[in-house]
Write a protein that binds this DNA or RNA. Structure first.
Lengths: 332, 332
DNA sequence: CTGAAAGCGCTTACAG
DNA sequence: CTGAAAGCGCTTACAG
């Protein structure tokens, strides 16, 4: 596809100003070299008259400053993820950089296709919000700064990571759940292919067991990280349950929304009849899900820490993982 | 910022394959010219061995196929907008194109800064989801395909537009509202600088008036298109109202979420005590806001139609506006 | 079918 | 301080 791009180039400016293109370049870029005041003024006048803007592609090819980053997000449905992406975009834009956006849909092939595209575009760095393991990821990471957010990859333990301690957050939440609920508890956890979901499940289970309230196998089920899957799992669990659950614990907020819908359909009052617990704290909860207890994952700090680390990586520095604080949110 | 990009270029491939770079290029790009089977195989072998991928920047500078698009979205808080952005991204990726993402925050200066960046990057086209009027927009549109989504710009009536007939949707919703509610009605409408908000307000008012149920000035207030603003406006309105409103009509769903929160705080049951009406139908409503009546704006079709039109514009064809069908969603 | 060369728009040593 | 030239990685007429 061709774009009808503006045709005025540095040559036109040079001609209009009566100087060489080298001087135009120097006049535009502060630190590059010295220009006389007279030249600068001529150039600025010509730029203004021609309404010239430097062509980023020319600049980028020349080798300097490809200030473009990429972000791959695993699910377009998850508003918590969107919130992180947006926060990163805002910070990148403040730095004069731009962000290419891709969606992997938790799919290895799709993620690899995105990574191919990213590689060919020579981006300065890649943010991966809940990455899956894929061949191209390992390869790209050898040449390009990559930061993992919210989920680590088992086979790539050295990639910089920004997240929370999911295991301890889950066990802390489990304590609160046991305090608040005497009756039977259901657990709809996330896919065990995900490092994060596994840590959460581990935290929940070990804490419940420690208190002698281990979740029975028939009250536990694995869901995908979506509302639809959460709903389907809730349908399944609550068909087989003898007594209504006192609490339903979910691997993330999306799953919790699905479970909520099922409770409503069954005429259960949330949270009076059945309490629901999630994970992430989607910013919308404050407005739309006042019934949801959850772990607040600091999405704004995710963005801050990830962008900060990316800057360091791009400058060739090393970075350490950021394990950030979380909050247990108990809404009543 | 420098990226540690892979260093293997078309030259290395040419050398490894024992052919010229021209032949490598021809072997890679189908329609470009003829290559013997022998050459093709040598090239493919070299590419595989070196794990080469063409540098997009080189390609782009050469003049062909800058398959990068930009999307400017007015508010990162609005999930309806996010949904449209994601749908567009998905379709663009399917075509092998990529999407740069920007957030204008309904701010003219910020939008202009994004447009500068977009212009210097020579993108193939720009999608604007709820644009504001700004100097650079007019200018960019002269050189680059621009598609407006969900909101037109008064001073740029010729820019291609994808949306619905907001005025008639609003008046249809108003009819339903009057059918369902006998008591007093409040109206929290969007900013009148927005063409879309104006059309909605116009549709509501004229229909209420036509039925002799004009909204009183003290029951009407202008909000920004956010939950926070909707909340603040609801606080204001419901402090002054003598009797509780039978219905609160909102300029979009975000405003409605804010109003909902205020109703809850006041102990009002939604929808039994007070019904709430919104506009857009955020995909999350199905799960989280079963109390919300609204106009379903076809966000998936927005994406389809916008991408389709963009393809035509990029090919130099002309396009007509897409005024799409909507649905009145009455949840009970 | 194939290669040498020009050129996309820029920046940066290199001379002067 | 300034300009001519090289070169970033590619594609595409142009010859052969």
């Amino acid at each position: 596809m061709k774009s009808k791009a503006p045709k005025v180039s540095i040559k036109d400016v040079a001609q209009a100003a009566g100087v060489s293109i080298a001087s135009v370049s120097r006049a535009m870029n502060e630190g590059t070299g010295n220009v006389s005041e007279a030249t600068r003024q001529k150039v600025e006048k010509a730029i203004a008259e021609l309404n010239y803007r430097p062509n980023w592609i020319g600049k980028a090819l020349r080798g300097h400053s490809n200030n473009t980053f990429a972000m791959i997000i695993s699910s377009i449905q998850n508003n918590f993820f969107s919130a992180v992406a947006w926060e990163i975009e805002r910070r990148l834009n403040d730095e004069g950089a731009a962000m290419l956006l891709f969606n992997s849909n938790e799919n290895m092939q799709l993620q690899d296709r995105c990574l191919e595209e990213i590689r060919s575009r020579q981006v300065a760095g890649v943010f991966m919000l809940c990455a899956v393991d894929s061949p191209n990821l390992k390869e790209l990471a050898e040449h390009t700064p990559v930061i993992l957010i919210n989920r680590q990859i088992d086979d790539l333990p050295d990639l910089p990571f920004v997240g929370i301690d999911d295991r301890s957050a889950a066990s802390e939440l489990a304590k609160a759940i046991m305090r608040e609920n005497d009756g039977p508890i259901a657990l709809i956890h996330g896919p065990q292919t995900s490092n994060t979901s596994r840590a959460r499940l581990d935290g929940f289970r070990s804490e419940f067991e420690r208190e002698g309230r281990a979740i029975l196998p028939e009250n536990m089920i694995e869901a995908e990280l979506s509302m639809e899957s959460g709903y389907a799992c809730a349908v399944h669990l609550m068909n087989t349950a003898k007594t209504p659950y006192s609490a339903i614990v979910c691997g993330n907020d999306q799953i919790a929304y699905g479970a909520y819908r099922r409770c409503r359909e069954l005429g259960l009052n949330v949270p009076q009849d059945t309490a629901i617990y999630g994970f992430d704290d989607n910013p919308l909860n404050h407005w739309l899900a006042p019934w949801l207890n959850t772990v607040s994952v600091p999405h704004v700090r995710y963005a801050e820490e990830a962008v900060e680390r990316m800057k360091r990586l791009v400058n060739g520095q090393t970075v350490e993982n950021a394990i950030l604080p979380y909050d247990i949110i108990l809404r009543r």
